[in-house]
Design a protein around this nucleic acid. Structure first.
Length: 570
RNA sequence: UGGGGCGUGGUGCAAUGGCAGCACACCAGACUUUGGAUCUGUGGAUCUUGGUUCGAAUCCAGGCGCCCCAGCCA
């Protein structure tokens, strides 16, 4: 890959940072990851994480991990730990772990300062009143000529209270003297501002809710707008990188910096990652888990980091995928196939090869000695000479893939069929003689003869065969469970649908048992990734026991025969 | 539309006034002890209309389309 020569951060961000360093706006670089601990990390978060991480890294700067825990009704310590674990697994390193709640005291002081400057006030309006007085946007996408598309805001009757009264009220809000929803602290900006966010945004709301870190100390909690930017300033964050949806918050971000006269962090936006067939909404993800549609947050069909990890996706593939996308401000939808291509690419270079027969069919080599067992030499990874070789036992009775035999071959089928000779990988050339069927006419056993002169797979007379099959010796085979995954959803953009049941792919999980794997796999450890030759990439699942190994299919190999076969059918 | 953001092959990006290129996908072929991998090749794009310029994806003006904002969520 080209990570050595290409920058991993988007050019427009790098240019902005370079400019800031050149002009002296900053003489160092510090970025931050600002996850809210209210759910598990998914592939969509990786983009922001990696941009923050690599931006700091490229400029010799630092990365802070700051949990945005300003809403105690949604946040839990459990998620803090999970996020740290997942981010570390991805390969992200931070120099400092902080919390928005670390700054509640200082932040309150800053709020008092704004009140004293006459730039913030306590508003006694109800939530409904406040919402109504903010003005409106056109309903829906259609705008009626007869209506103004936007109504100006209306100033609150409490907007011009005295500083003393505001200070007193704010203090008492903090002390928990008022019920939830009865009052808020608002910045005094401009109720007719074209940007709705500037129409006296809420800074503090009353919540009599214990916080996962500050306990019952606080009865007011800051909003995102009144916390995030201030935390950036307090931590000396130079570049606050975030997704496009925060673009409209920037004027407010800058307003606070200006009025407070604090460290001038620069917010830069980029577009978020949209991946087809991936569910990114935390709310809907939770629903999938709670309804039991998936087995948990780490279900391999989910694009949560935990799910991807369990599925067998290496972190390097995620990094490669995300950084190769490049970055713009465009709304974009990345094809899942592109992600899978990167996964294959990484796994092809790193995964050890093994043989496993998913849907077994017995193959008997009639002219092979009954009790003979030969140890065949097999390459661990043809792409990596340093991966070495292993021994694979071969005997008279084998399993091959059901798909690898046809009693009546279709055109272009050149695997096993009566009269045809194929290669058993790393073993012998074998020629099919006949098939044995049960009373229903199903093939239950295939017979063949081998050519003893072809040990290893090459014929001394130079004759060629078109197919090479993977196989497992029946007497040595390990019965294993194999879980095959397809897209969880039947639609490309599952987040657009509210009725989840209507878009679930009923075939998203297929469990195969017994499949037969070569004996060497008994030494595999949970999380180990393999390529089952000619089939796909697999990862050993934590559900595995000593008696039964469980493998998850990460991705298939490209199957050009499937394509040919499909085109023959149509 | 009040404000903001964005428009380049099917998808994601590049080209920063000078031959529109790359990756994924697709199609065709070569090679092959994985019908894998690898390699080669074909097709296909600058939202639109005008303007500036020797020359425009790029600069200017208008139009069109998509996305975001009316949480005391982040």
């Amino acid at each position: 890959m080209n990570s050595g020569t290409r920058s991993r951060i988007p050019s427009f961000i790098r240019e902005a940072v370079e400019e800031d360093l050149r002009t002296g706006r900053f003489n160092y670089v510090r970025t931050r990851l600002p996850p809210e601990p209210n759910g598990y990390l998914h592939i969509g978060h990786c983009k922001a994480f990696l941009i923050d991480y690599f931006t700091a890294q490229e400029f010799g700067g630092e990365l802070y991990l700051r949990f945005d825990d300003t809403n105690p009704t949604k946040e839990e310590t459990e998620f803090v730990e999970a996020i740290k674990e997942d981010a570390a697994w991805l390969g992200i390193r931070w120099v400092k772990e902080t919390y928005a709640s670390d700054y509640f005291d200082l932040l309150y002081e800053w709020a008092v300062k704004l009140v004293k400057m006459g730039l913030a006030y306590v508003d006694d309006q109800s939530q409904a009143e406040l919402s109504a007085s903010r003005g409106t946007l056109p309903k829906g996408t259609k705008w009626k000529e007869t209506e103004p598309n936007i109504r100006p805001g209306v100033e609150s009757p409490w907007r011009n209270r005295s500083v003393e009264e505001n200070l007193d009220l704010l203090e008492r809000m903090k002390n928990g003297e008022f019920p939830e929803g009865s009052r808020v602290l608002r910045a005094k900006i401009d109720m007719n501002h074209p940007n709705l966010l500037m129409r006296d945004p809420v800074m503090y709301r009353i919540m009599h809710v214990p916080h996962h870190r500050t306990g019952t100390k606080w009865h007011i909690y800051p909003t995102y707008d009144w916390s995030h930017g201030q935390n950036d300033a307090m931590e000396g964050i130079t570049h606050s990188l975030c997704s496009e949806e925060y673009r409209i918050h920037r004027p407010l971000y800058e307003w606070f910096i200006e009025k407070l006269g604090v460290f001038p962090s620069r917010q830069i936006e980029f577009s978020r990652l949209n991946l087809t067939y991936a569910m990114m909404s935390k709310r809907k993800l939770r629903k999938l888990v709670e309804k039991g549609i998936v087995r948990g947050w780490d279900d391999p069909r989910l694009t949560t980091l935990r799910g991807l990890r369990r599925r067998g996706v290496p972190p390097e593939a995620i990094i490669e995928f995300v950084t190769n996308l490049g970055e713009t401000k465009n709304d974009s939808w990345v094809d899942m196939a592109q992600f899978e291509a990167v996964i294959r690419d990484v796994l092809n270079k790193t995964a050890l090869r093994r043989m496993a027969v998913l849907r077994p069919l017995k193959l008997v080599i009639d002219n092979y000695p009954d009790d003979l067992v030969e140890e065949m030499d097999a390459l661990n990874n043809p792409e990596d000479p340093t991966a070495g070789t292993r021994k694979v036992p071969f005997s008279k009775v084998l399993y091959i893939e059901q798909d690898d035999f046809r009693e009546v071959p279709s055109p272009k089928y050149y695997r096993l069929y009566p009269g045809n000779e194929v290669r058993l990988r790393y073993a012998y050339l074998v020629k099919c003689t006949h098939a044995v069927k049960d009373e229903n006419g199903n093939v239950v056993e295939v017979h063949a003869t081998y050519d003893p002169a072809t040990r290893g797979g090459d014929a001394p007379d130079g004759r060629k065969v078109k197919a090479t099959l993977h196989w497992v010796s029946a007497a040595h085979a390990l019965p294993v469970e194999v879980r095959l995954y397809e897209q969880l959803f039947t639609v490309e953009r599952p987040d657009d649908t509210e009725d989840l049941d209507s878009i679930i792919n009923p075939n998203s999980l297929q469990v195969l048992y017994p499949s037969y794997a070569e004996a060497s796999l008994s030494e595999a450890k949970v999380g180990d990734r393999f390529q089952f030759e000619r089939v796909g990439y697999f990862c050993l699942d934590p559900d595995s026991t000593d008696g039964k190994l469980v493998f998850n299919r990460t991705v298939t190999l490209k199957d050009s025969w499937a394509k040919v076969e499909k085109s023959l059918q149509t």
